[in-house]
Design a protein around this nucleic acid. Structure first.
Length: 235
DNA sequence: CGCCAGGCCGTGT
DNA sequence: ACACGGCATGGC
């Protein structure tokens, strides 16, 4: 597999970004008011509909626990009850407590101090936390801490699969392959624009994903329809 | 009613 | 290295 062969899918993905932007417009992501709310949402939305996450966030807001201080003094049992609507609540409650404990013990309870750490080591530290995998870590890095990292998700995986953006012969479609593909898609853009592009791209991925990229694809009216011949050829 | 959602983790091969 | 089941709720 030559480098030239791997370039085309990245360019196609870059064009898909423009198509999605034209169709959906600016997304203004992440849907949250503070970095800490982003982090809460990133945990809560794991394999969970955002609608359910909103109910949990509303519960937390009513309990005054949308802030770091608020969550810190909340007993884990109470936290479980408040986030119950978004599912997996025992895991997510203890995972959120572990995040706060890490922040307090290693960064003086400061998100700014956390954000100041180098991207690579910070990502590793996040991945070491319970309940934090690559997508959650990258969502926190990009949307809460302002680091220029791509975020891959199940929708992007399906897009890559259905549009044949990744060659099965050079590896299965796993998270890092999707992230690398996204990085290559925007590699020719000015470095300073990478963070906002990654931001917008993932938001657009979710927008199109919710509408068209379910387990059963609903390609009718999909903005990526211009690329659909790749899918048709494959079927 | 059954399927599914903006994953992650432990276990078994 | 991968596959697979468990985790849990609520919307549609």
């Amino acid at each position: 597999m030559t480098v030239a062969n791997k370039l085309a899918p990245a360019k196609r993905l870059r064009r898909m970004h423009d198509q999605l932007g034209a169709a959906y417009g600016p997304q203004y992501w992440w849907p949250a008011k503070t970095p800490f709310e982003v982090i809460l949402g990133a945990y809560l939305t794991q394999n969970t509909a955002w609608k359910a996450v909103e109910r949990s966030l509303a519960n937390l807001r009513a309990a005054g626990a949308l802030s770091l201080e608020g969550l810190r003094k909340l007993p884990v049992e109470e936290l479980q009850r408040l986030i119950q609507p978004s599912g997996f609540f025992t895991r997510k409650a203890s995972a959120l407590k572990a995040f706060v404990a890490m922040l307090d013990e290693e960064f003086g309870g400061s998100l700014d101090a956390l954000a100041a750490a180098p991207t690579a080591s910070l990502r590793k530290r996040l991945l070491d936390l319970p309940g934090v995998g690559p997508e959650t870590a990258d969502a926190i890095l990009l949307y809460a801490l302002g680091h220029a990292v791509p975020v891959a998700d199940e929708y992007l995986r399906r897009i890559a699969e259905r549009h044949k953006l990744l060659d099965p012969s050079d590896g299965r479609i796993r998270y890092d392959a999707l992230a690398d593909l996204t990085r290559r898609a925007f590699a020719a853009d000015p470095p300073a624009s990478h963070a906002p592009l990654f931001n917008e791209f993932h938001a657009l991925t979710v927008a199109v994903g919710k509408a068209h990229c379910g387990r059963a694809p609903r390609c009718e009216g999909c903005p990526l329809v211009l690329d659909l011949h790749h899918v048709r050829n494959a079927r």
